[in-house]
Design a protein around this nucleic acid. Structure first.
Lengths: 203, 203
DNA sequence: TTGACAAGCGGACAATTGTCCGTTAATATT
DNA sequence: AATATTAACGGACAATTGTCCGCTTGTCAA
């Protein structure tokens, strides 16, 4: 090749890998692209790939990191804006943001989830930054609701985990594609089934 | 080898594979045993293995089939016995049976779930008999509850899917091992968080 | 400018999953 | 009993993931 990229060009290489990945993914679909393929297309050895991204899931996660960050910012903004509203309303806003995100990045998200969930040696998804942030956010909302007697007395930590579990990409895609629910219906049903019942009606 | 097993001995071979699998699994752990290893130990070619079990998940599922059947029978029995009780009580019984089952077969169950969930070509878990049975059972209970006005007006099909999703083996093992909840606490919290809120209090 | 050092590249390798096809052996037919 | 038929066995192969180590190539010191 013309340009030998080394030490100093580490950033260039990273960018090149990510760009190549993105292009191959959109061309052939996430599932049909192998790490070797990417390495070859990006003019990089497998070793280099794997030193940077321990597995395909990590690579996808990196690809998504910008999106995750964006979601996180939006979430914090939205919650700040609604600060004075009841917790129930804020939870619904959070749900909507998250499910819209899922809808938008369905395929990539499912791949990430699969690889990270299924690879034995990989750090479990529960220890990844996006999960922790989401869990924390839900947790503090639920705790606030408990304190203010807006919600039933529940274990916030536990509830947050199960809520997230019921919104995982696999089940989401299944509901959307196989069961035929529209994106809007999914949000509505989640709200009716999992959120509203947690809160106490005021009159 | 001494005895050549063929056509007529198909059953023998199946049994031999399953026995070998069980023995290797309990010796080295489910994760550390490969399909080739099993084939070799059972004096069988890979082709034979894969013709019977499309992947490791299917093999595990077969290993568990007896247990699943047993759970199914217990479930039907239990529900029949409680037929006259409120739906809420029956749902709790169902939850307990299922979570006890999860507790007992945690490792194998997680492997099945992983392989079936993650392998692209595999039939998704949602189309497997055990899932369908469980979903159906929950569905009809929820529908009954709706009709009798014991529960809030919810979409039974949707709710059943999300309830099952929140009880998947991964999250269960995480809650038990990493988060430090006891088996009993998990059941209690599930009940408080996901079941009770669905039902309407009578007075 | 030259030599030592170390960061890190990249391809060869091992392990595993899953497929394919030539061969084997059990049953049926005469 | 011999031959044809066909189910199905089993090993060789391809594909993919992830690891390891020799070699390249910058950097720093004298």
């Amino acid at each position: 090749m013309s340009d030998q990229t080394q030490r100093r060009d580490a950033n260039e290489i990273s960018k090149s890998i990510l760009q190549t990945t993105e292009s191959l993914f959109s061309k052939y679909g996430v599932e049909n692209v192998s790490m070797h393929q990417i390495a070859k297309a990006a003019n990089v050895g497998q070793g280099t790939m794997y030193r940077r991204y321990a597995n395909k899931g990590e690579l996808c996660l990196e690809l998504m990191s910008e999106n995750f960050h964006c979601l996180q910012v939006k979430t914090l903004q939205s919650l700040a804006e609604l600060k004075s509203k009841p917790v129930k309303e804020r939870m619904l806003a959070l749900l909507k943001l998250h499910l819209n995100f899922l809808e938008k990045h369905a395929q990539l998200f499912e791949t990430i989830h699969s690889f990270i969930t299924c690879t034995n040696n990989a750090k479990p998804f529960y220890e990844k930054a996006p999960y922790i942030f989401f869990h924390q956010t839900i947790c503090s909302l639920l705790e606030e609701a408990s304190e203010k007697k807006e919600a039933r007395p529940i274990n916030a930590d536990f509830t947050a985990h199960t809520l997230i579990a019921s919104m995982n990409p696999k089940i989401y895609n299944f509901l959307r594609q196989k069961s035929g629910y529209s994106a809007k219906e999914v949000i509505e049903n989640f709200n009716k089934t999992l959120l509203e019942p947690l809160f106490i009606e005021k009159r």
